[in-house]
Design a protein around this nucleic acid. Sequence first.
DNA 1: TAGCAAGAAAATATCGATTTTATTTCTGTT
DNA 2: AACAGAAATAAAATCGATATTTTCTTGCTA
Lengths: 233, 233
Amino acid sequence: MTSPEPKTHSEGVYASLRAELLGGAFLPGSKLRLAGLGTRYGVSLSVVREAMTRLAGEGLVRALPQRGFCVTPLSIEDLLDLTRARVLIETAVLRESISQGGLEWESAVIAAHHTLQGTPYTTREGHLGGAWSEAHHAFHRALLTGAKSPRLESIATELRDCSLLYQHWSIEIAGDVDRDVAAEHRHIADLAVARDAEGAVQALTEHIERTTAALLAYAESQTGQQRAAGIPA
Amino acid sequence: MTSPEPKTHSEGVYASLRAELLGGAFLPGSKLRLAGLGTRYGVSLSVVREAMTRLAGEGLVRALPQRGFCVTPLSIEDLLDLTRARVLIETAVLRESISQGGLEWESAVIAAHHTLQGTPYTTREGHLGGAWSEAHHAFHRALLTGAKSPRLESIATELRDCSLLYQHWSIEIAGDVDRDVAAEHRHIADLAVARDAEGAVQALTEHIERTTAALLAYAESQTGQQRAAGIPA
DNA sequence: TAGCAAGAAAATATCGATTTTATTTCTGTT
DNA sequence: AACAGAAATAAAATCGATATTTTCTTGCTA
């Protein structure tokens, strides 16, 4: 369900690029050539440039003065910082949600969880399904809507999107297998709806940190084989 | 102390526009004409447009598809949300800072506070001094550096910058007078360095909320006279 | 062969102009 | 006089081209 027709060309290219980035279509750290993307989307450089500038503001790409743009490079240091920020902020907002969310919030959480539960985790090829990704995103977002704070929600969402850059490679590459992710989600949803703030926060924290741990384990095992595009030291 | 010479034209215009916005040079909600700014800075539209796009990402201006950009309009609703987000995040980061900051952090806080203390609050005309503004910013930033988290710091800073849009009008117009702001800062600094997390968080919370309260009181007194441009008369 | 320098090629940043969209002004009608 | 619609104006979005800067290539020197 994409927006019907983006008012402006720039908006469309921005949305497409964003989806590609979050879908892991580009290697982290790789250079994004404006001219190439321009012809690819059938638009002028200005349009691509504007989209890039927006993406840079969100931290999904990086602007290198006089040298264009590249996909935000991954690093263990940043992964740890990002995880820490996410845990701090998402748990704080979840607490707010649990204490201030009403019946509509409970319903939204249960609905989002049900949708997530019914969406296949991976496609037959073992790749991350786009539908699941969307449902996952919606579930985590629903958890935070009880706080009724647009600012906090969007900050949390932005951080989550950044970590999606990592998670994609984690799941595709590290094969983060021995986890029952569905159970984790159910646990979080149950505790949240039951208004068990401490329990829910604990569960969410573990949920977030588990993915980080899996990726770290993978990075550890790869020491020495790192390339510029990947998990550089 | 501005950066010597921005590599790119865009960077320079961005920085200038940003400073003007935070200095309250434009009325909130007012339209920003690209052509006008272009000739004003002696650059092409593309350059202004890129700067605007960046500022929109930070929330200082708003992009209206097919209608250009305007200074982010002020609203009581958003002020309350912003304040809430700031309190939640800044206090959480301050806690981290206090628990993890080392001696360098303590020193930085003390130094920043000393600088702030020695900088005049307002100019002779009663306007907010640019130097004080800078020192104030540096002080609050120093408080958070102990957490050693670039992401959290930049999120907190971004939120503070947004609220600067409000604070400017609060101080200039509402004449937020019967406060001993210097004492508030000293109190926060003392408690932070003394590692009294709860006390420091409490003091910081009151510090943030006091400005909001002053602006709200002003807005209240103006009920009925608000126009589309925002709170200011 | 390694290192460096000059030139060639490619890519970016910026510009000026065109196209498209929004806004205002002007008309004719009720 | 108030309103709806149409032309005129103004503004934004996009384009294609130019000027700079970076990057790559090549050839020379030690």
